[in-house]
Amino acid sequence: MRICIACLFLVVITTVRAQDKPAYKLFTQEGKDVEYTKMIKALAKADVVLVGELHDNAIDHWLELQVAKDLYAVRNDLVLGFEMFEADDQIVLGEYLTGVIEERHLLSEAKVWDNYKNDYKPLIELAKEKKLPAIATNVPRRYANLVYRKGIDALQTLPEEAKKWIAPLPIEIDLTLPGYKSLASMSMGGHGGAPSNENMARSQAVKDATMAYFILKNRKGLFVHYNGAYHSQNFEGIVWYLKKAAPELKIVTIHSVEQDSIEELEEKNQKVADFVIAIPKDMTKTY
């Protein structure tokens, strides 16, 4: 009788465990489980944290807010930076944070993303509440598009006033870096070589270089930067430009991936960042 009861108990426990549905799981770059609090301790020791997000992922945006709050609890010298705001919108963003203008002005006069209210407003409101700097780091999209259409040298034709919103020219671009090389190949449809097709990768590099430039220009304490996962994965993109300019910086990267199962980190998702957030592939999207 006791044996039967024990067996029944084990069946119940196994069934309960099978019903657990974690919304995410954290891993080190080697694929080992890591606790959230341990990650926060590591982030708090950094000079720059790059948060590589999936733009439409609800868990990513919730975690970004939690990480910012928990880092602020131990480092009140936070600076938040955003790919989602273009550098020439800094004056409008700053005016909103200091209460000079209302939110309606921010929404109408800055080039805010369509998912701003759901996904980035909580971070901006945290910055406003805690009086933290929030930095618009991205190159104005019209200049990234100019590079895509006419090549990197087209930036030299811009007036000096416009060049203030771009990393200092000339921008070094290494198209042999795996991320850029892959992007160039994709944009070429696998047909090799035309320089105009490589401009897709060059325009992304200009974004990376500009984001790195404004991170360095505005770094006072711990700079936490929010960007698409592509821009910092495999320690390339923004990371490459930061290290070129300031090799002494302690940079920690976070990267998000979606998997059918998050029990283990898939091999292809290992070594892409210092910390990897694995999220179920069927997680709710914000748009």
Rank of each mutant, 00 (worst) to 15 (best):
A6G: 10
V11G: 05
V12C: 11
T14P: 01
T15R: 13
V16C: 11
Q19P: 00
A23Q: 15
Y24I: 10
T28Y: 09
D33I: 08
D33R: 10
A42F: 03
A46D: 04
D47W: 01
V48A: 03
V49H: 02
V49A: 04
I59T: 13
H61Q: 01
L63W: 01
E64G: 05
D70I: 07
Y72H: 14
L78A: 00
L80F: 06
E83M: 04
I91L: 14
V92I: 15
V92R: 11
L93I: 10
L93H: 01
E95A: 14
E95M: 11
Y96A: 08
I101A: 09
H105D: 14
S108R: 09
S108E: 14
E109N: 11
A110W: 01
A110N: 09
K111T: 12
D114W: 06
Y120C: 01
E125K: 08
K130I: 04
K130H: 02
K131A: 15
L132A: 05
P133L: 01
R142C: 08
Y143M: 08
N145K: 12
N145E: 12
V147A: 05
R149F: 06
G151S: 08
D153H: 07
Q156G: 13
T157A: 15
L158S: 10
E160C: 10
W165S: 15
P170V: 05
I171Y: 08
D174T: 04
D174R: 00
T176H: 06
Y180T: 00
M186Q: 11
M186H: 13
G189N: 05
H191L: 15
A194H: 13
P195H: 06
P195S: 06
S196D: 14
S196G: 10
N197H: 11
S203V: 04
Q204Y: 08
A205Q: 00
A205R: 06
V206W: 00
V206F: 00
V206D: 02
K207T: 03
D208T: 09
T210M: 07
F214Y: 08
F214E: 03
N218Q: 05
R219P: 00
Y226L: 13
F235V: 01
Y241T: 09
L242F: 04
K243A: 08
L249F: 03
I251N: 05
T253R: 06
E258H: 07
S261Y: 02
I262T: 07
I262L: 01
E266M: 13
E266Y: 06
K268T: 07
N269D: 11
K271I: 02
D274C: 04
F275K: 00
A278K: 00
I279T: 05
P280E: 02
P280D: 10
T284V: 15
T284D: 15
T286Q: 03
